[in-house]
Design a protein around this nucleic acid. Structure first.
Lengths: 178, 178
DNA sequence: CAAACCATGTAACCAGTTACATGATTGC
DNA sequence: GCAATCATGTAACTGGTTACATGGTTTG
């Protein structure tokens, strides 16, 4: 995802401190990613080192050592450069662990294949229903349309997955009937 | 994907050397991944270090220094352990660069949003058609059903993506008409 | 006063890519 | 003889996770 540009993007309009950035990013990308402090803070330090952001110590009444990060003109340029010229590929991966596992499943346990795929299917259906429900709730609230788009995308891809797993089951039961 | 288990899986039945393994893996997972020697060879060395595979120098008539890797009993156990007990999640990601870019697009260039999504859509349609064509060819040849499954999955997910992008366009033109 | 939350950070790992470096063999 | 292919490898880098470590503040 390149957290670097997510950070620059969120700092583009307003200064934030680290903890807040994690919240902002997860508010928006929640379904798509979780970020860890183990990645966020080093990223912020690196951005500060290369002069893309400026670090300002702020002594608020809450936790004492709060670092506010402010984007610099150099940082703005870098973000615009990425924004205008990056390739923007849709490259969702189909190489999840189950798909990978499937190759060996057919070879090693052909008798259990159908059963395992069905178990997988029921899990995906559950997940899909959960997202459909979340989508219904979000649409009622009528805010943060980006999250609505993201979850819609998730639902469509889960539906694709369900269709595929059903195909697999059909194809495997055909095999074993012979 | 954890190349380690892919390697153990392919060595489970037959011994192979590195170059050959890359071919076997890409033959099967072609659409899902490409692997580099910069990852494969270190992985093989590590597997040899931990005693999961045994390295045997073979002097064939082709390139002289060919290392044949043979799975050990310890390696078989490790593979079976993964095979039986790993979680097998379907966790395809929706966090491709375009989706990420979209958030900032709405904020920074709302006027150009629709146009950029349309460009994206046409690219995805082209890609989807290419995979449909490949699928047709493979089905005619009637071999390597795993590849057929993989490409079918790819097509379904590309169709989901097309549906989503069309939704986005509809939603954005609605916005701008007001 | 304890639990939940705010806030920052490091070290060790894991998975993967790109670029580089080498050299033998085969087929046109 | 030259291009394609077979074959093995390293070094530097990117992007990310997990576990650990610290300590202040708010609220019930």
């Amino acid at each position: 995802m390149s957290l670097k540009y997510a950070v620059l993007g969120f700092l583009y309009e307003d200064a934030h401190h680290g903890y807040e950035l994690k919240q902002r990013i997860e508010e928006n990308f929640g379904e798509a990613c979780t970020i860890s402090y183990g990645q966020l803070y080093p990223t912020l330090h690196k951005l500060a080192d290369t002069g893309y952001v400026r670090k300002k110590r702020e002594s608020g009444k809450r936790a004492l050592d709060k670092n506010v990060y402010i984007i610099t003109e150099k940082g703005r340029r870098a973000f615009r450069e990425w924004f205008e010229n990056s390739p923007k590929k849709n490259q969702f991966s189909i190489k999840d662990e189950f798909t990978f596992f499937l190759l060996f499943l057919g070879k090693i346990k052909p008798d259990k294949t159908c059963e395992i795929i069905k178990k997988q299917l029921s899990q995906v259906i559950t997940r899909c229903d959960r997202y459909r429900e979340k989508l219904r709730r979000l649409k009622k609230e009528r805010r943060n349309s980006y999250r609505v788009y993201l979850i819609t995308k998730m639902v469509y891809h889960l539906e694709a997955e369900i269709k595929w797993l059903n195909d697999l089951i059909a194809s495997y039961s055909e095999h074993t009937q012979r």
